[in-house]
């Protein structure tokens, strides 16, 4: 399996560590994402996947290590400065602004963008998720889990990401909805979006991904192309239940 070679990866993380109090949740994670690539980060519950994405976005402090984004060290930047550089995240558990309308949620996703960009992108998001256009005046908190997931992804897309971070987009969704969310991810990837996908649904994520990383208790234990990892005995036993 050949991996598309790019001179410098869009995201290069090395030796990243992060703690909750005295507990080290990330113990030196190194990972790369090239431009246009879909990389899956899989692992069991509590492995540190969400912490890793939170640290990338800057809402969780890094205690050691380096995050290079487009050649720039960003590990000391505030979250909103990282958003302005193009790191947008759809967080675990969706985290929509419940009492605000869908449209307000999406507009806030474009908080760092100009008004012209926002109205243009709003149209694109409604094309991607037509159901949101019909319900755009409703409070986001009243939607089903799947629709809230659409709002969360749409909100992240409104920031015009150069790197889209998706944390557990299929969590807690009905099988049909999971399929729909994965279809959207496939479509975004076909459009050239660079995506880092965190999933407990390892099979679905690895089937989509160019490359994958397996995270276990704060350390990367395996890496390879999506197909390779799907065939890996260890992965099959631990995460796919095969």
């Amino acid at each position: 399996m050949s991996i598309p070679e790019t001179p410098a990866p869009l995201l290069a993380v090395s030796g990243l560590e992060s703690c909750y109090g005295r507990i080290k949740a990330l113990k030196g994670v190194s990972l790369e994402v090239a431009s246009g690539e879909l990389v899956a980060l899989v692992g069991a519950n509590g492995a540190g996947k969400t912490t890793f994405l939170r640290t990338l976005s800057g809402v969780q402090p890094a205690s050691a290590g380096q995050i290079l984004f487009a050649g720039e060290a960003i590990e000391r930047l505030r979250p909103e400065q990282r958003v302005r550089r193009g790191i947008c995240q759809s967080p675990e558990g969706r985290q929509v602004f419940g009492p605000l309308s869908i449209e307000d949620n999406l507009r806030l996703g474009g908080y760092t963008r100009s008004a012209a960009e926002v109205s243009e992108d709003l149209d694109k998001i409604y094309q991607l998720f037509p159901v949101l256009r019909d319900k755009r005046r409703l409070a986001a908190g009243t939607l089903s889990g799947g629709q809230q997931q659409m709002v969360a992804i749409g909100r992240a897309l409104m920031g015009r990401p150069r790197l889209l971070l998706l944390d557990e987009p299929s969590m807690g969704l009905a099988p049909l909805m999971v399929e729909e969310v994965f279809a959207v991810i496939r479509r975004l990837r076909a459009e050239g979006m660079t995506i880092l996908l965190v999933e407990q649904n390892a099979f679905g994520a690895l089937a989509l991904a160019d490359r994958g990383y397996v995270l276990e208790t704060g350390t990367i234990t395996l890496t390879g192309s999506g197909a390779e990892l799907l065939q890996n005995e260890q992965v099959r036993a631990a995460y796919l239940g095969l």
Partner: peptide
């Protein structure tokens, strides 16, 4: 206003507000 809504959004969910780029 978007600024006002950003303040409200921060009160509803601080982390999510930071993730969309609200200071």
């Amino acid at each position: 206003t978007l600024t006002g809504k950003a303040m409200l959004a921060t009160s509803f969910n601080r982390t999510a507000a930071e993730l969309v780029g609200i200071n």
